[in-house]
Design a protein around this nucleic acid. Structure first.
Lengths: 143, 143
DNA sequence: TTTATTACCTATTAAACTGATATGTTAATG
DNA sequence: CATTAACATATCAGTTTAATAGGTAATAAA
């Protein structure tokens, strides 16, 4: 599996915040209830998103979270890379991977690179706005 | 990560067997040494491939493994699905997944389906023969 | 100034998965 | 009957996953 609950939950929260934007902030509790996700678990995920300036978090009464940009300016790829760490399909293509000693003879490396590139292009080509509630029937992401 | 060592090793063994085809059988020991993979670990992987008729295994002296088909008749996708169990990018698209109660409201399902389909098409479009040693320069799988 | 709210922070945990190793048993050959 | 090599089953250490627990800090309202 390429994407765990961390990434999937992160996306759902971003969409939820986009769909429920107000002048004020949306408390985690609300989103967690709407999305039926463990509140405490979500905290850790949102922390990462705040640290990377995807969200603003404000404490205290009236506090909560808010998007820092318009929904169309977030790509699915960037959200997933932040929360998952990497979207590489194989270990050898992960950012922290040490260079493989079998690289020169590897028959599969180019294939993995192609897959990696394809996944990246697909996910970087979809924005949070694309995932928001809409009425256009039959709209989908099938290539 | 979508593909673990199980799938990667399986592919490397299939390529190795394809590149080292003989009239006789290739013992696991040889392949394991050439590919620098734990012999015992490989055993378990090849067992799966034999059970699904991707390979023939013969015991005893002179025994070993052999492809059951020509290299161009194996797709990378089928080998990986057998050894990895599934290539679904998210849990909800796995074969054994129970249908999600949030499906109707899910904003991301179509995106995941598109990704799944793209990955499947890519990996089912490459054969073991495509991965074998060749001289054509610049050949790669970049879309 | 106290109380309620809400984000932030750190640690722990049970279950599953990964990547192996260990120890055999069965079948084929010479 | 000895050697070879696949087949079979169990175990294991380490990591990851998906949470939970229990606090601290900041903000607003009473």
């Amino acid at each position: 599996m390429l994407i765990s609950t961390k990434g999937r939950y992160a996306l759902r929260v971003m969409i939820d915040l986009a769909e429920n934007q107000k002048d004020s902030y949306v408390p985690l509790k609300e989103t967690a209830q709407r999305q039926e996700i463990s509140e405490k678990y979500l905290e850790g995920i949102l922390k990462t998103l705040v640290q990377h300036n995807m969200l603003t978090g404000v404490r205290g009464k009236g506090g909560g979270y808010r998007l820092t940009k318009a929904p169309e300016n977030y790509t699915v790829g960037e959200i997933l890379r932040l929360t998952e760490g990497s979207l590489a399909p194989v270990a050898c293509l992960e950012p922290q991977a040490k260079s493989c000693p079998r690289m020169a003879q590897c028959r599969t490396l180019e294939m993995w690179k192609g897959l990696d590139q394809m996944i990246t292009q697909y996910l970087d080509g979809i924005t949070i706005a694309d995932l928001m509630s809409r009425d256009v029937p039959g709209f989908d992401y099938v290539i």
